[in-house]
Design a protein around this nucleic acid. Sequence first.
DNA 1: CAGTAACCGAGACGGTACGTCAAGTCTTTCT
DNA 2: AGAAAGACTTGACGTACCGTCTCGGTTACTG
Lengths: 211, 211, 211, 211
Amino acid sequence: MTGTRPPGGAPARPGLLAHPTTPRSLRVHDAALRAAAELLAEGGLPATTMDAVVARSGVSKATLYKHWPSRTALAAEAFGLRMADAAAPPDTGSARGDLTEHLRQVSALYAGDHGLVFSQLLAACVIDPGAGSYFREFFLQGRRDAVAELWRRALERGEADPDIDGETAIDLLFGPLVFRLMAGHLPLTRQEADRIAAAALGGLLRRPPPS
Amino acid sequence: MTGTRPPGGAPARPGLLAHPTTPRSLRVHDAALRAAAELLAEGGLPATTMDAVVARSGVSKATLYKHWPSRTALAAEAFGLRMADAAAPPDTGSARGDLTEHLRQVSALYAGDHGLVFSQLLAACVIDPGAGSYFREFFLQGRRDAVAELWRRALERGEADPDIDGETAIDLLFGPLVFRLMAGHLPLTRQEADRIAAAALGGLLRRPPPS
Amino acid sequence: MTGTRPPGGAPARPGLLAHPTTPRSLRVHDAALRAAAELLAEGGLPATTMDAVVARSGVSKATLYKHWPSRTALAAEAFGLRMADAAAPPDTGSARGDLTEHLRQVSALYAGDHGLVFSQLLAACVIDPGAGSYFREFFLQGRRDAVAELWRRALERGEADPDIDGETAIDLLFGPLVFRLMAGHLPLTRQEADRIAAAALGGLLRRPPPS
Amino acid sequence: MTGTRPPGGAPARPGLLAHPTTPRSLRVHDAALRAAAELLAEGGLPATTMDAVVARSGVSKATLYKHWPSRTALAAEAFGLRMADAAAPPDTGSARGDLTEHLRQVSALYAGDHGLVFSQLLAACVIDPGAGSYFREFFLQGRRDAVAELWRRALERGEADPDIDGETAIDLLFGPLVFRLMAGHLPLTRQEADRIAAAALGGLLRRPPPS
DNA sequence: CAGTAACCGAGACGGTACGTCAAGTCTTTCT
DNA sequence: AGAAAGACTTGACGTACCGTCTCGGTTACTG
């Protein structure tokens, strides 16, 4: 109940504690997240040091470490909350259109400043595995849920191959983007996004009747 | 001049310079790589500190920084050389078989100790972009070349869709694995590898004639 | 009101106030002192943190700070109460014997675990002068009173030099022990205690008639 | 040879190392000591934090910790060097005069700012025993040597009681001052110094012939 | 052969941030 | 109204590793 709560269970918003304990102050929590988000936007992960968050948020270091196990976890949560409403999946009328368009959006997002931060964060979570759960809960999950919704629509429309697992489909579409973002071996242009979408969707969607 | 040479041009093996000036360079270079590879194997990237390489190889820090721009670059090269002959692509007789089997191999490799080091290295290269070129030259390139060869065979056999770029195909197959390795949102089991292979190859290979 | 009362006036045992307002105070006060004393015995001053006292006594931090101005003050009082009946001054029949024996006792006490705590406490009172009065009132005073009694007996017996102030005599005898305890430049063995006693008493007691 | 050298052996001024190693830079060592001494003079031990020394000396924290095991050790050495020539023992012509006068000097010194720092330092060395050796080597030893010289002169003059150990004599004279300085139970005035001197010397010096 | 220039081992150093600790203050809730 | 619970600020601590630098010694071409 107290102390760092590695996410995975309920986020457990404080204020609902059974016993007469001061709830883990929302003020502090939010101030830290806001400061971290600003720093991420301004200078990426390298600029988002704990000391900088302390300085900007007015929250003390000791308190930060009571709320998050590491600076990476804090940054991941802050980034996730900020990104929650970026790249909302489109509705073009067809599954192929939706997925292609969304993949373009995400590719463009990855190619920009947010993509840099995303890659730094993902990298940091590899190095500090304790932060991974924050990254997954506060950032990844939302994104995947959105695409899962697209996939569900595609299934309903009968466009998607029902033999293919939704998770697999998501990874097939976005894995290549992440791979390129991290390894930098190929660019993330719109054209490349289209190629990836075309190739992936060839395997994910039902063949059109060979009329 | 064996100075820091961000790869991309000739690998420029030291010792083969115009004037045979630097015979010691070779010894030093190899000793450092060997030490780094050992440390990577023993404790992953975190254990592969420059000080540890210094201690184990007998090569001085200053010298290390004459050969590589950062510890990540050194580690990437060391890892690449060690991994050069891991997971040799198979020859099963069919493109589908080859690619599926290779994807299984790589998935298994990622799921093990080497995968951990790979992910740490990739992460480090995001954080230290100067090392990325080493990672790509000494590790990634070899892997991709091997798969490219598989792809070429598939084209020759008429199994692969000739409209799809080889690079795209590679990323479509392995991007999902890398994504899962880095983000940890889903496991890298054999079953999952098969699912990914099936879905990806559905889009990459030619439809069998609907006889 | 059992608030912070830097001693120097009446010891003001809580619970004896004009209005019997604070019955719980007594329980709290004693519980804290007991916990502090135990912690001192187990791990010395470093182990006697406020948090540890809180945890062991069940008394809250805020309450502790209503009773004592600092953790050092609390520890000093706890130690003083525990030590009240240690090293009772002897009665050997002669002033020389009494004082020599007592000095031996105190030396032995300083050389042991209690001496370590004593030194830590004295040190802490230097760093936190606000606690000094507690140390003097609850620990030092009792000890000095006991020796003063010895000195009075010595005067009555005609053995002590009446020109010498009692306080001076006490410091002359025990100052060397404290000095060694704190600075650690020389040991606190029985032999050393005897040397100090002999030298000090040479100046403090009357010369025996040079018959 | 390298790393923190707890004093006790030779100070081992660097620059004389067998192997071609950069000597532990004197510049750094001196800069740190100078900064620490200044800080001690300005704000006592509490102001002499490692961070402050870092800021003032330009020496990095890591380096400081290679030269000294703790901030207390550094402060002790700095204080000792600064105090080396304070309160030089006098030469009045008689042992009684010398010792009485010196005790007055030291008492006055203890009663002033230097005394405060001295007491803080001694206290800190109790709490951080690893620093004690620095305190003894760089501060205490010099003082005791000076008094030992006085004692030797007193012996030569036939004024001192040859049965009394020099160390015991020193502790008998100065222990009371240290005791009062640390515990604060009695003041350190000139009059008190004279009383202590008189009582102590009564035991230390030979009785004048009872003419 | 002697000279000289680059190379190398050793490791001290500055810098930056980390995560930790305990003291003491403050707020909220219960009894 | 006092007390428990415990969150919070503050300030410093000691550590880790990076990458730079200087020093003295060695090696191996050059004249």
